[in-house]
Design a protein around this nucleic acid. Structure first.
Lengths: 232, 232
DNA sequence: GTTTTGTATTGATATTTGTCAATTTTTGTG
DNA sequence: CACAAAAATTGACAAATATCAATACAAAAC
């Protein structure tokens, strides 16, 4: 999942970190390019709304978005943060054609939408591509298993440590990052209440594990954070 | 996912509730049959061990098994109960070739093991089959989303009500069933401690929502149970 | 620049849930 | 059958966590 490839001539930023695109034939690429449309979303805008019909595969070309599901009492669970190079296939594909999650922009987001038809056709006619898609799905399943363990076996501190590590290592690639996620968002990633999140962050700060100032977070002791995360 | 089909001549019970098998060509079916082997597991035996290499696709021909992941401190999360007609593809396929969950028999279980090679070959050469596999995966993802909501937004009573409904409606197909799951197993399905599970079951019994006697459970008020499940 | 609105923070408190220890019941085995 | 081992149950208690209300702060609108 590291090789990138342009799937469009007229939008040079359309890189997607997905090996699968390398398997596409010229014809398939052309059909992707033909079907594609380039859309920019502003911070806060909804890109995908849970419950609507899924009509496109979405590639994130630039910016960050949150992928979340609506749970009980208007509460949300943020499953993951999407960033440049991410590629979203709704689990409604080949099932009920519905979107099972929402996606909304947490910065300005440039996207590239590819029609389900072009995608489906590539999936059906190109077995290497299909294999890559199944691989992607299997990674998603593995991530969800880890999420289940996080949520059911770890205490708040462990879940929050896990979220901070995720943001640092997987999303912002730095021990020192600025985030556009609100405290509520970070809480929704960690499955805790906003108030509890704030208290735990304060603890981490007072123990010098992290430094936090508004939306700027710096990890001082990565090891301690990993320990908290591992033990729960 | 309702049509069944024999994938073997010499084991007439080998039915799998999976449309995908209908898409197999005669050649593909033959190769499945050639590669397959029929194995019977006793109650308590491990069918798949998390962390081992995945070498087969497993079909459950008869009996019940639990599919679970190992979490922290020797605790487990039971993801689902498998029964006749179920069909298990490890998420290690096309990724790291490892099993990411364990499966163990909770009754005597008859299985039919199909080699990864035969399966992979069918996946690559038969796009209708590949589509059905992706569909299956998307259903699994949807189930995991629901599991996340259960675990993070519902209280014990809601999670346990959900488990009882699952066992009644999806596994045993009766409001009145005998289970071979232990109390610990039911707790691991619901993400609660064994003691808490017992207390909640007692509450449900005293409120006349269910009748429970050892491993025999009868649902008296399905509606109440669904209400508890929905509200959380 | 002030008002308004939404977000962040803090403290007090109640609820939920797990843990530990003791006891009973069931199951398996010689 | 009798014993041992495992599983189920109960009660008391402690830990974890959410909720509510009040306040502080920051960003956006006028």
């Amino acid at each position: 999942m590291s090789i990138t490839r342009d799937i469009s001539n007229d939008c040079s930023l359309c890189h997607v970190k997905f090996n699968g695109f390398d398997t596409l034939s010229e014809d398939e690429l052309t059909s992707f390019k033909k079907s594609h449309c380039k859309v920019i979303y502003q911070k806060g805008e909804t890109i995908i709304k849970e419950g609507t019909r899924c009509t496109s595969i979405i590639c994130i070309k630039k910016g960050f978005a949150k992928l979340y599901i609506n749970g009980l009492e208007n509460k949300k669970i943020i499953i993951k943060i999407l960033k440049e190079g991410d590629f979203i296939v709704s689990p409604g594909l080949f099932t009920d054609d519905l979107n099972h999650f929402s996606v909304s922009a947490i910065t300005e987001v440039d996207t590239c939408l590819i029609s389900i038809e072009a995608f489906t056709s590539a999936f059906r006619n190109n077995n290497r591509f299909a294999e890559q898609i199944l691989q992607l799905n299997h990674h998603i399943t593995q991530d969800l298993y880890n999420q289940l363990i996080n949520f059911s076996h770890k205490k708040m501190t462990g879940r929050i440590a896990s979220t901070i590590i995720y943001l640092s290592e997987k999303i912002y690639n730095s021990k020192n990052f600025h985030t556009t996620l609100s405290r509520q968002d970070i809480a929704d990633l960690s499955s805790v209440s906003k108030e509890s999140l704030i208290r735990v962050l304060k603890d981490f700060k007072e123990s010098n594990i992290i430094a936090i100032n508004g939306n700027h977070i710096e990890i001082n002791s990565s090891k301690t954070l990993h320990d908290i995360c591992r033990v729960g």
